[in-house]
Amino acid sequence: MKMKKEYATLGLALVLAGCGGGQAVTQPGDTTLSQDMDTAKDAVGLERLAVAEQQYRAAGQRAVARDDVTAIGDAGYNLATVQLDEGKPQDALSTVTATRSALAMRGQTGDDSGLDLVQAGALHRLGRETEAAAAASRAAGAQDTDIVEKAQLIRGLIADDSGDQATLASVDAYFANLTGKLPDSWTADAKEIAARNLLVTGGSTQTAMQDAMQAATIRQTQVDYRDMARALGVAGRAAAKAGNAQAAAQLYARASQSALQAGDKTTAAQWAKLAGTTSAVDPFALPATATTKKK
Rank of each mutant, 00 (worst) to 15 (best):
A135L: 13
Q119Y: 03
Q119T: 04
L103M: 09
R128Q: 15
A80M: 12
V69T: 03
A80D: 07
D112Q: 04
T95N: 03
D68C: 00
R66W: 05
R100I: 04
K88S: 13
E129M: 08
G73F: 07
T99G: 09
R128W: 10
V64W: 02
G73M: 01
S101C: 12
A134Q: 04
G76Q: 05
D85E: 04
A92F: 04
Y77W: 01
T97R: 15
A133Y: 01
A98W: 11
Q83P: 00
A122V: 07
R106Y: 02
Q90Y: 02
A132T: 05
A122R: 10
A65Q: 11
G110Q: 05
G107Q: 03
D67V: 15
V118C: 09
L93C: 04
A63R: 01
L123Q: 13
S137T: 10
L103H: 11
T99A: 13
T95H: 09
P89I: 12
A133S: 06
D91W: 05
G76K: 10
D91G: 06
R62L: 06
A104T: 00
D111M: 10
G114N: 05
T95R: 12
H124Q: 01
G87W: 01
Q108W: 12
A122C: 09
L115S: 02
P89K: 08
A102I: 05
E129L: 07
T99M: 15
L84V: 12
E86V: 05
V69S: 03
A133T: 07
L126D: 10
A122H: 00
G73N: 02
T81H: 14
R125W: 07
A65S: 11
Q83L: 12
V64F: 04
S101D: 08
A104S: 07
Q90T: 08
Y77E: 00
D116E: 12
A71G: 09
D68A: 04
G127H: 09
T109Y: 14
T95A: 14
T95K: 10
A135P: 09
L84G: 03
D67I: 14
A136G: 11
D116K: 03
A122P: 01
V69I: 14
A98E: 10
G107S: 09
T95V: 06
D68H: 10
D74I: 08
A63W: 00
R62W: 08
T81W: 06
L117M: 14
Q108G: 08
A75W: 09
H124S: 04
R106A: 14
L84I: 15
L79Y: 13
Y77P: 01
V96H: 04
T81V: 14
K88V: 00
G110W: 09
A133L: 07
A104V: 10
R62V: 01
Q90C: 07
V69A: 13
S113Y: 11
V69Y: 03
A104W: 02
A134I: 01
L103K: 14
T70W: 01
G114H: 02
A120K: 02
T109Q: 15
S94A: 15
